[in-house]
Design a protein around this nucleic acid. Structure first.
Lengths: 230, 230
DNA sequence: GTGTAATGTATACATTGTACACATTACACA
DNA sequence: TGTGTAATGTGTACAATGTATACATTACAC
């Protein structure tokens, strides 16, 4: 089981500017050598540009310079490929959140730190959604339940998944007394729902005409609401 | 421009129990008579069972007993058909919300009424999502911005859309002094995001394994959070 | 050195959205 | 009342897609 993490995202979007011609690499050997990875990388790039529907098996194999059916040696079917992309997307999101958390200014005020941490998770979540709409759309849509949200394969560099990073922020709020233990239950779901819904409404919903700066401002106010209401 | 409203939903899911054989109605006349409606109804039924991806043009025309290309006399392309289904879905959702609002017990306490109204919108939204996942998934996914959220064609029996019904609830909160005018701005988006996100996470996300009763309980607590945080 | 499992290819099929040319008919206007 | 025209439905065709099945090539274990 490979994990790709963020390098997929820092990869330049496309080597060739011609949007049509697919990067088809000829090879001399019969074996490809690293086809699983090649397929997954191609799939991720397609997903970045056009979301799940852009991940078409034949195009992926084309880009890997391989016959269509070769994919079936590495993925049971298209769904399985999408699932792999989904995990890569979750992983990339987790890294984004970690980065945001690491940007928090040092402080002795634990309460302040806890609050900042919660905001960091939400802010990074929304930023990722806006920056990588294609990947974001696949992160939590493919068949994929909560057990996966604790799967190290979908985690970031710290080994924690986005869901777990959110959980630790909430735990800190409880520790500092800012949140009662009763309120802690299901708190992940409440916070997550808010930012997730906003992201979805913006990316594929009626809020799609919001421009980026507006979106960020409203996003912050949304997080305000969550902070007050949790 | 036809509008279908709720009767589509009260229609029994399927006349024939055989899941395979599509209901193909033979007709003697060359003209169908009401093909637009027939296509839209078939599309809605397919959407109910399998969401947008289940709305395949050829199957829709099959069920209407007509050749595939006949659809192009009434819809520019598949997207246009999906758009029509989306509006029907929005309309059905609006009706669901209206019904919930009408169930609110009479009271002289305006604040209580306002709060109940907001909760009714959220509760009905979530109930609709759970009861009609296929339609719900299409309501706010197809290309479709906020201007549509005020389009009478996607409204309920009262002539108001779901978005507008939410707006009136928020207005009442301001009138009763429970919400400051500053907080009123974008409040639709905040409340909407929360329930929408929860619904999405449940229907096609990692929360899909939640059972219905659990989902309802958590949904109510989510609405609690919104109420506090708005 | 050889056989076997892993990996890639060739061919084929059903299905889909949709373009284009043609057939049928309702209805407006003479 | 007849007729022409626009609206509506059909037939045929094409490029794509996911994937099944049979076959080809090669790495590697013994």
């Amino acid at each position: 089981m490979y994990t790709l993490h963020i390098q997929l995202l820092t990869l330049s979007t496309s080597m060739n500017m011609t949007n049509k011609s697919t990067t088809q690499i000829k090879r001399s050997t019969y074996r490809h050598g690293d086809l699983y990875r090649a397929l997954l990388e191609a799939a991720v790039q397609l997903a970045r540009k056009g979301g799940a529907e852009a991940v078409v098996l034949r195009e992926v194999t084309r880009q890997a310079g391989v016959s269509p059916n070769a994919a079936y040696r590495h993925f049971a079917d298209r769904q399985a490929l999408l699932q792999a992309v989904s995990m890569a997307a979750q992983s990339a999101l987790a890294v984004e959140i970690e980065n945001e958390i690491n940007r928090i200014a040092k402080s002795d005020d634990l309460l302040e730190l806890a609050r900042a941490r919660l905001r960091a998770v939400g802010t990074a979540y929304l930023r990722f959604a806006l920056a990588e709409p294609g990947l974001f759309g696949m992160a939590f849509s493919v068949p994929n339940d909560l057990s996966n949200a604790e799967n190290p394969a979908s985690a970031g560099d710290s080994g924690l998944t986005a869901y777990q990073l959110l959980g630790t922020a909430l735990d800190m709020l409880v520790e500092t007394g800012a949140m009662t233990p009763e309120r802690r239950q299901f708190a992940e779901i409440f916070a997550w729902s808010a930012v997730h819904g906003f992201a979805k409404l913006m990316l594929e919903g009626p809020l799609r005409s919001l421009d980026k700066t507006q979106a960020e401002a409203i996003g912050q106010r949304l997080i305000d609401m969550v902070e007050r209401g949790l």
